[in-house]
């Protein structure tokens, strides 16, 4: 983890703020004057991780560029819950064009700003996992390859939530969605090969790629800030639990994000020019069951006869991540 508590502060940098930390060591979210880039009154579900992640990221980005920020937004929950006519929750100049073209729209904005000599104004693009890893993937890759001056943020809630929880290429194996029902020989989503977009982004050798979760705000803000300090194509993939789509309690949003990390199912790291530069280590490793059990989308794994084999396969995925990224303290990167 790039943020190690320098001095001991009770909760150190785990909590949002802490009156004991020097102001510059507190998060943007701790600030009384924080910008609330995504303001109250939005129509996200109770406990929506995406709403939270978006405010975290946008506020941090706003701070990093002195509020000189423009955003392009893909179709999806974030867009729908934030801008139903006649109200918008955004505080920044923001545009929604389509589901699959957000990276390109952002490229256009960046190009316009460049022509106009407005170097101080920065561009972010944001979308859900569907808008990023599936339908918007072509535009995303093009934006990466050209190294356009855009920070793309993917809010990964592991399915097409806005249309009623259908499977996306980011949906984990065994998960129940409306299009991967827990029936048949392989209930829930299939064990595919996975589509790791952060890794694909790294394969473009773009200046910066990072993953983060809503459970570690300091880390998330650090990454957004770092990305904002760079130019060219940058990608941040933020893990945002969706209580509705996952069948989880609305108060478990952050806990789930934390467990995703602590099980090793979601690796948190950053990379520059295609090379991993740092990895957030697991603090208290937990078996995947602890994470899966809190979500109804996996409930079929824990029936009268638990699907031990499937659970073992999911555990193996976590273990592979742990090995691959060196997520445990003892192992090297």
């Amino acid at each position: 983890m790039p943020f190690q508590p320098v001095k001991f502060y009770q909760t150190g940098t785990f909590t949002v703020g802490n009156r004991l930390l020097a102001p510059e060591e507190r998060t943007v979210q701790a600030n009384m004057q924080r910008t609330n880039g995504l303001n109250s009154g939005h129509r996200a579900c109770q406990g929506c991780g995406e709403a939270l992640g978006a405010r975290y990221a946008i506020d941090a980005a706003m701070r990093a560029c002195n509020n000189q920020l423009v955003a392009a937004n893909a179709t999806g929950c974030l867009e729908v819950f934030s801008t139903p006519y006649p109200e918008t929750s955004w505080q920044i100049p923001w545009i929604h064009s389509l589901f699959g073209n957000t990276a390109a729209v952002a490229t256009g904005i960046a190009a316009a700003l460049k022509v106009k000599g407005r170097r101080e104004v920065r561009v972010v693009a944001q979308g859900g996992d569907g808008g990023t890893t599936d339908i918007g993937f072509g535009c995303l890759s093009g934006m990466f390859e050209r190294n356009d001056d855009v920070l793309y943020i993917c809010y990964d809630n592991e399915a097409y939530m806005n249309t009623g929880v259908q499977r996306s290429s980011a949906t984990p194996p065994a998960a129940r969605t409306a299009t991967t029902m827990p029936v048949g020989v392989e209930p829930g989503n299939v064990f595919g090969q996975g589509k790791n977009v952060p890794q694909i982004a790294m394969a473009h050798n773009i200046p910066y790629v990072a993953t983060a979760t809503v459970a570690d705000l300091h880390d998330l803000e650090y990454k957004v800030t770092k990305a904002m300090g760079m130019h060219g194509a940058r990608y941040i993939h933020i893990f945002v639990p969706c209580p509705l789509g996952w069948g989880a309690a609305s108060n478990d949003t952050i806990k789930l994000a934390r467990l995703a990390r602590e099980t090793g199912l979601f690796a948190v790291y950053e990379a520059e020019h295609g090379e991993v530069t740092s990895v957030s280590k697991i603090r208290k490793r937990v078996p995947v069951e602890e994470y899966l059990k809190l979500q109804k989308r996996f409930v079929h794994l824990f029936g009268k006869t638990p699907a031990t084999e499937t659970i073992a396969r999911i555990q193996a995925m976590a273990d592979r991540n742990i090995r691959k990224f060196g997520l445990l303290e003892e192992e090297g990167v």
Binding site: T15, T27, A30, S40
Partner: peptide, 20 residues
């Protein structure tokens, strides 16, 4: 103890921070 967690983690910005 004013760790700001509630203030930060609310997806709806529905927590008002009153100051130190």
């Amino acid at each position: 103890f004013e760790c700001d967690n509630c203030y930060g983690v609310c997806p709806d910005n529905a927590v008002i921070k009153l100051g130190p």
